Simulated scan of single mutants.
Amino acid sequence: MSAPLGVILAGGRATRMGGGDKGLLALGDSTVLDHVIDRLTPQVAAMALSANGDPARFARFGLPVLPDPLPDFPGPLAGVLAGLDWAAAEGAETIVTVAADTPFFPRDLVARLQGAAEGQTHPLVLAATPRGEGERTKSMRGGRLIRHPTFGLWPVALRDDLRAALTDGLRKVVMWTEPHGGREAVFDDPGEPFFNVNTPADLDAARARLERAE
């Protein structure tokens, strides 16, 4: 399977951080988004940002900025659709999405998502992790896992189907992926591979984690 295009989902409203762009928060000598880009760049053929509002705030990254193709902030699936439309124009067959506020995701994310997609007519895979004690979980095929729906492999061939579902009011990722035979790639890496920065305390934890890694 050829390298997909990468789409960084940066369209959240960051209400628990007081608003603004979580990806632009300082982390080490750069920003959270810089760390995301650093991890994703070697894994994909090209990248874009899915974000609403003035794209000029992301100008220094030199990436295309893709606004939601539907109004009223319909959630991460709208960012996925924006990425699929961009990829179609670029002649690509798949995209991989990552969240702009998750600076420590696996450096082999794409390879493992693609591995889980082997045999699928339309590669459609979400990242998942084993549940931890006390964590809110959902029962899934093969056991109890936690899905990370902003981290996934998505086929361009299904973009019109996704557009129709969003237009009809669908908002939950798994309600669209499951009918299409979506799979899970399980990441049992130590240290919360999909840790994301949602609150000021999370940002402090990310900074401490980065210092330990240096």
Results as ranks from 00 to 15, higher is better:
167 T>Y: 08
5 L>K: 01
123 P>M: 09
81 L>M: 13
145 L>Q: 14
182 G>N: 10
178 E>I: 13
105 F>R: 02
64 P>K: 02
114 Q>L: 07
16 R>C: 02
71 P>Y: 12
31 T>G: 01
166 L>D: 10
197 V>P: 01
57 R>W: 06
206 A>V: 12
132 G>M: 14
34 D>N: 05
84 L>R: 02
184 E>N: 14
173 V>W: 05
187 F>Q: 10
137 T>Y: 15
35 H>L: 04
95 I>N: 02
79 G>E: 10
9 L>S: 02
67 P>A: 12
36 V>H: 00
198 N>M: 05
105 F>C: 03
152 G>R: 11
53 G>C: 08
166 L>M: 15
85 D>F: 11
28 G>Y: 01
180 H>D: 11
38 D>V: 00
146 I>V: 15
117 A>V: 05
128 A>T: 11
148 H>R: 14
194 F>N: 04
210 L>V: 01
186 V>G: 06
37 I>H: 01
197 V>G: 00
11 G>C: 09
116 A>E: 00
191 G>E: 12
28 G>Q: 05
173 V>C: 14
71 P>S: 09
166 L>V: 07
199 T>H: 04
4 P>W: 06
171 R>G: 14
205 A>S: 12
169 G>I: 07
107 R>L: 05
208 A>P: 02
142 G>W: 11
6 G>Q: 01
13 R>G: 08
5 L>T: 01
197 V>D: 02
121 T>F: 04
196 N>E: 12
121 T>Q: 15
80 V>H: 09
90 E>S: 13
3 A>M: 08
149 P>T: 15
114 Q>A: 10
154 W>N: 03
174 V>Q: 12
113 L>A: 04
172 K>A: 15
76 P>H: 12
24 L>V: 00
183 R>I: 11
59 A>V: 02
163 R>N: 07
108 D>G: 00
16 R>T: 13
4 P>I: 05
158 L>D: 14
96 V>N: 04
68 D>N: 15
115 G>S: 05
94 T>L: 11
